[in-house]
Structures are given as C-alpha cells and as structure tokens.
Design a protein around this nucleic acid. Sequence first.
DNA 1: ACAAAAATGGAATAAAAATTCCACACAGAG
DNA 2: CTCTGTGTGGAATTTTTATTCCATTTTTGT
Lengths: 273, 273
Amino acid sequence: MIAPGSYEELRNELATRHEDLSKRLKQIAEYALDNPNDMALETVSGIAERASVQPSSLIRFAKAFGYSGFSEMQRVFRTHLVESGANYKERIRSFGRDDETAEYTRNIVLDDFVDGGIAALDNLREVVDPDKFEAAIKYLGEADVIYLAAQRRSFPVASYLAYAFAQLDKRCVLIDGNGGMFFEQGRSIRKGDALLAISFKSYSPEVVQLVKETRENNIPVVSISDGVLSPLTQNSDVCLEVEDIEVHAFRSLAATMTLALTLVVALGRQLQE
Amino acid sequence: MIAPGSYEELRNELATRHEDLSKRLKQIAEYALDNPNDMALETVSGIAERASVQPSSLIRFAKAFGYSGFSEMQRVFRTHLVESGANYKERIRSFGRDDETAEYTRNIVLDDFVDGGIAALDNLREVVDPDKFEAAIKYLGEADVIYLAAQRRSFPVASYLAYAFAQLDKRCVLIDGNGGMFFEQGRSIRKGDALLAISFKSYSPEVVQLVKETRENNIPVVSISDGVLSPLTQNSDVCLEVEDIEVHAFRSLAATMTLALTLVVALGRQLQE
DNA sequence: ACAAAAATGGAATAAAAATTCCACACAGAG
DNA sequence: CTCTGTGTGGAATTTTTATTCCATTTTTGT
C-alpha cells in the first residue's frame, strides 16, 4: 500500500475506495472531501468533533490510506492549500525546491521564468489598490514636470517610463545619476512638479533620500515599491505595491514593467480628456 | 492593547510599529510579512529555525502585538490563508474582453495589460527555439566583452541586461548613445567581443546599421527582435524572436524582459560550470 | 563609563496533540 | 444462539509543540 502524495491522488483514492470503507471511515471520507481546509488546519480532535467521530477513527482512516498517521496525511491537505491558495510567494519557494533536484535543461529555465512572470502578473492584478492607482494618476497628471528616480535594477523601469512619457508629450526628467549628479539633478525639482520614484529592497539610499527631501519640500511623491516596510511607502504621498517573483536568485521585471505601462496608458487617457 | 483580528489589520500593525521594534522582533516581522504561509502552517520551532530566531522570540512577538500567545496569532494567518484561497478559486479570467463596449474603469485597464502580459509570456514559451537560445548563450559566454545596443523602447531592456551582466561579473558595455556617441561607442568593439542588439519595428536605424557593420567585421551578433522580417534577423548570427502584445496601442515589455532575464540566468549558469 | 532597563538565548516546564491500546459492540457464519 | 472477526469508542500513553523562566547579553540613559 502506497500513500497518495498529492491532493489529487488522494481525492481520487477516496472516491474509488469510498464504497468499500466501513461506516465511520466512509463518514470521514465524506467530511474530508467536503472540508479539505479543515483537514489541513484543524487538529485531530477538532476534526473528530466536527465530523462526529472519534479521534482514533481519524488515525485509522489515515492508516487505511497508507499513511503512517494522521499528521502525514494532513501534510497532503496543507500542501494543497498552499499551492492552490494563490499566495504566490509560496509558489516561488516551490520553484526553488524543485530546482535543487531538477536537471537544468535550457527549457526548464525559460519555463520557470515564464511561470514566475505569470504568477507575478496575476498577483499584480490583486494587490494593486484602485484608489491608490487613481491617486497616483492624479498627482502625475497635475505635475508640470515628472521627475523619475530609480537606480540599479529599477533603473530600466524609469528609463521605460521616460520614453513612454515623452510619447505622450508629458514632460519628464530621468534622473540617471550620470556623472555622479544624482542629487544635483534631483534638486532641480520645483513646486508644481512631481517625483516618481522606483526602488525595491535593498532600497537604494540615494532614491530614499531624494524621496524624503522632496516630500519635505511639499512636492508630491509617487512611488513604486514592494510592500509596507519599504521606506518609500512611508515617505510618499502614494505608493503602488508590486512584487516581482524571484526565480533562480534573479528577480524579473515583468510585473513592474506592466504596472509602469498601465500607469502610462491611464495617464495618457486622462490627459486626452 | 488589543490584538489585530484580521490579517490586514495585523499587516498594518506590523508595518506601522516595525521601526520601534527590537532587532529580533523586527526580524520576525519581516519574515512574517514575507512568508505568511509559513506563519500559518509551521510550528513555532519550524518558523524559528527558518527565520533564524529562538522559539521564545516568536512567543514574545505574538505577545508584543497583544495576543495571548503564538497560537492565537497563528489563527489570524490561518484564516487569511483559507480566505485568500477561496477567492482565488472563484476568480474567473476572461481574455479578449470587448473593448468597444466596456467602460474603461481604472481596473479594466490594469486587467487588460495583465492579461496581455500573460498571453505574451505564454507565447514566449512557445516561440523560443531552444537551439537558437543555446547558440545565443554560447556566443555570449565566449565573448570577452558583451556590447549592448538598443534604442528607444528597447533601451530599458539593454539597461537591465547591463545591470544583470555586471552582477555576474560578465564584462559589458552599454551603448547608450550619450552625447551623440552611439557609433563611436559601437565601433570600439573588437575581435573576441560580441554584440547583443535589441530592436523591434519600427527598427532603430542606428542599431540596424551597427549590427550590419559589426557582422561585416566578423564579430558575433546576437539579437532580440520580432519575427523573420526584422532586419536584425537577417544580419545576426542568431536572433531570438519575441512578440510583446500590443494593448490599447501600447506594447508592454513583459515578455522581452523575461527573455532577457532567462538569458542572463542561463549565461550565469554556464559561466559557473 | 557605569548602572539600570530591555532584550535575548536556551533550557526547563506545561500544554496540547497525536497515537496506541484495549474492552466492548455488532455483524455474519456455523 | 454463540463463536469469531472486524469495527468502534474512549481512556491511557507517547510524542510533539507551545510557553515560561531565568541567566546572560545588549542597549539605553546619565
């Protein structure tokens, strides 16, 4: 007897053997199929109570399906909960785990990044707060000149935005730090302008400092960053959150780029009106 | 002190109080925000190990946020896990929405780009030719210095590649055309180097010309472009095809960026061997 | 630089949970 | 109707897990 390793296998096994099971085990099987979340999260006695059986029956049940005990079977339900459960950060981790054993054919690498990118985009859809997004558009739309600040990995995003804003005839300045003039470029920002800053952990100190200074001068700051702990979140008028997935120790820009593009299009639409 | 009852409240509390927390508690807060699933499913000692803290610190952490103990706090994470999972399953994804009749609310714009990005990534998986990909890696791996040429919309991709190659300690030169020196920069390319050019229609004349000249000097040219009609395809040793989807008259860079990233990782892996 | 207070690590302890065990119930065969 | 074997409830036991406690270290305020 070999225990099902995946939720799908287990589900299948439960269905096939359902008829042959004893009264109590049948009862448990039905409960398990109806309440997989309970199976994943509750304790033996908790489930026993809800399903109106004895705790020992649950152990017998698990053993009847080849597991060493209830806990081992519960792991199958837990894994399923995480994997199906949209929390995409955990999906990154499962990429990482596969990686250690998988052979690296070229295709697997591309597939991983494609999957990662898709997951990141899916996540983007969920985490972007429409109110914040609208507020960001408003600040940018009202700005005379948009200043763009980003360094290192985020720089390409700013670079893309500079290109796209120019297409819209929206004036902007890309603070590229050329010639070590990062702050000099940044300090030419005036009342009526706005700063759009992009940075992810580990946050570029220059960008963080510029954001703070600009805010202190009462100039609107819109930022794109990762999560509530970011120093940009705290010092911006509005902060859009993105989290690109890290696969094979590298972080893509697919989600961030898509957000940037959306920002541009929404801004363009607003300017037309 | 009242303990946050929902995940969102907790998340918020973690963020606002993050700065005032002690070193260990801060560390735990970061881990919790990054790995909510672990917080939901793992045991105290399991989490302690992964987050590199003592089990007792986790209990202190929970108490610092008003819970009676770790278990009470964990319930918040578990509830969130179940609820976010349920939403995910119910979500419907509809591609190819009817743009003409749809009202353009802010969300629809983001959804369109997300869908477009996903479609582009899916497509990328299909169209990338593994042999060409491998050949590209080979040329780049053997190059002494990689020259990167791209203009306008493609420039951010080159910019990202420059950053990533530097991370790999792979020497590269980003031909940015600063000071109108595009060709001057490009002509410093030597035997033993390679050119990586990125351009899409309408093709940048500078990049096309540089590709031709470089090829004539028998220096390997790898390019990223769109389809067989591209002048880059015809004048490169190997050309990787990508097609980012155009939505609302704007073209994203999600797929191209993902291809670039994959190139970097594959190259990095090859260099390690 | 010092004392006081806060934070930390790690072992000790308490609590909770999983698992085992056994007496009993119940169905089917003789 | 009783014997036999499987199934079941529930208490006892073992294992795992959470929590507490205190000696030690680190920070803070003077």
